[in-house]
Design a protein around this nucleic acid. Structure first.
Length: 164
DNA sequence: ATGGTGATTGTTCAC
DNA sequence: GTGAACAATCACCAT
């Protein structure tokens, strides 16, 4: 049923909220366990829309979670078995279901990769922040051509040899 | 034409 | 410490 997306024009973002509302029921259970203390939220992170508004090409996106790493591979397989299935939701649900079926050992490789991804993210983030600082520091500096940050410093010594 | 949404879970950030 | 948003993906619909 695609009717669900009948009217998104109402308010784009609200759609997500509705979605989360559904999950809220499920999460509510575990949420209750965690908190008792309601954290005052002075101001949460800027709206994601606002983020896009900035559209900082330099800002590194968050590294994929192990689940996402697994999902990327799972998507390919899923699409091969279900080429007719169009829609991310189907793969998402299927992937999530299977993911829960995996054991830590099976998830291990995905987690390992995700961890490494985070390392790379840290580097990108450091460079990103540095650049941000640099721009501010040399804001008055017209000749920025002076120094360019090398976005590419690839260390090709990435070899994973897992020998149990 | 463009972008926003839908679904999954994990990670990350900020207060 | 906890809450909340965001990370990819792909086709489709509304503005």
């Amino acid at each position: 049923m695609k009717d669900s997306k009948a009217r998104k024009g109402d308010s784009a973002v609200s759609k997500k909220e509705v979605k989360k509302a559904s999950k809220n029921e499920e999460k509510e259970v575990k949420r209750k366990k965690l908190t008792s203390v309601k954290v005052q939220k002075p101001n949460k992170r800027p709206n994601r829309k606002e983020r896009k508004a900035k559209k900082d090409p330099n800002q590194p996106k968050r590294p994929p979670t192990p689940f996402f790493v697994f999902l990327e591979e799972f998507r390919k397989t899923y699409k091969e078995e279900h080429p007719n299935v169009k829609g991310v939701a189907a793969v998402g649900k299927a992937g999530g279901d299977k993911w829960k079926g995996l054991t830590d050992a099976e998830k291990a490789p995905y987690i390992a990769k995700a961890s490494q991804r985070k390392i790379d993210y840290d580097k990108s983030m450091a460079a990103y922040k540095q650049k941000q600082d640099d721009e501010e520091g040399s804001a008055e500096e017209s000749d920025k051509s002076n120094l360019e940050i090398n976005d590419e410093e690839e260390s090709e010594d990435e070899e994973e040899d897992e020998d149990d």
